[in-house]
């Protein structure tokens, strides 16, 4: 793979839920180190789109290639992609029966076959990085929403992924906790992580994104760098969306 190959490639991707056509021919390339923010009204297919990138949803038509591996029904390809792609969910999805440290070390020990000491050392470093080293032995239910989401980010990072997917990571948080999560994501972007972020946080998008993708009704309407996107959107639907969300 040459330096100029995209790390994520989507070509003509279609997806149906029953008769509902939720993705209508998506073409998108994401380059290594790039931060791409996907926004759009609810039901526009943006969550489905990023869930296709690590095959939590199966696309029905088109091609998806991640880090040189094409996503097909071949489970080895799916597993290989999932090892390189971290995901952070709106509802955190921490494992409630495990401590914070166990949440983070589970996958490195089971999947990467790291010795426990190595996994725990890395986990503690990551907890330091997301600002809650003292919570290692707590259970998720003892943490605030913002802390839980920071643990979820640390858990995904422990697998040392090449790509991080964020599916509305701050939408379930109380307003005062949104910044602490965005700070962690900002730091991640600065360190050069490739990120695809579905979010309504337009401040974050303007500041961190390299490109913003606007989706509506299962299709990509517009792709632009933040400056252009916010000041000179080309499409009427983008302008309508922005006028609602930037009130």
């Amino acid at each position: 793979m040459s330096r100029t190959d995209p790390i994520i490639l989507l070509q003509g991707v279609h997806k149906w839920f029953g008769r509902l056509h939720v993705l209508r021919g998506i073409d998108l390339e994401v380059w290594p180190g790039e931060v791409v923010v996907i926004c759009g009204p609810s039901g526009s297919g943006k969550s489905t789109l990023i869930r296709c990138i690590n095959r939590l949803e199966r696309h029905d038509r088109g091609r998806i290639v991640v880090d040189g591996i094409e996503l097909t029904d071949d489970l080895r390809h799916v597993d290989a992609v999932r090892r390189e792609v971290g995901m952070v969910f709106q509802q955190f999805n921490l494992f409630p029966h495990l401590t914070v440290l166990q949440n983070i070390t589970l996958a490195p020990v089971l999947v990467r076959k790291w010795p426990r000491e190595q996994a725990e050392r890395v986990a503690r470093e990551l907890l330091e990085r997301v600002g809650i080293p003292e919570k290692a032995d707590s259970y998720p239910s003892q943490l605030s929403g913002g802390q839980q989401q920071r643990v979820a980010i640390a858990r995904a990072l422990a697998m040392q992924p090449k790509i991080m997917l964020f599916d509305e990571p701050t939408s379930a948080l109380d307003p005062e906790m949104i910044q602490e999560v965005l700070d962690v994501m900002r730091d991640l972007a600065r360190r050069g992580m490739t990120m695809v972020v579905v979010t309504h946080e337009m401040g974050f998008a303007r500041e961190v994104a390299d490109r913003i993708v606007f989706m509506d009704e299962g299709a990509i309407v517009e792709v632009a760098p933040p400056d252009t996107f916010f000041t000179r959107p080309r499409h009427e639907r983008t302008r309508a969306f922005l006028s609602k969300i930037l009130r």
């Binding site: 939590l56 971290g86 999805n93 921490l94 494992f95 589970l106 996958a107 999947v111």
Partner: peptide
């Protein structure tokens, strides 16, 4: 919640590992 499966699978755990540990 389905999110428990999804979180484990997205971390690269197999379905048997997800069942056993999560």
């Amino acid at each position: 919640p389905r999110g428990q499966w999804e979180a484990a699978r997205s971390l690269g755990l197999s379905s048997a590992q997800t069942l056993r540990w999560v």
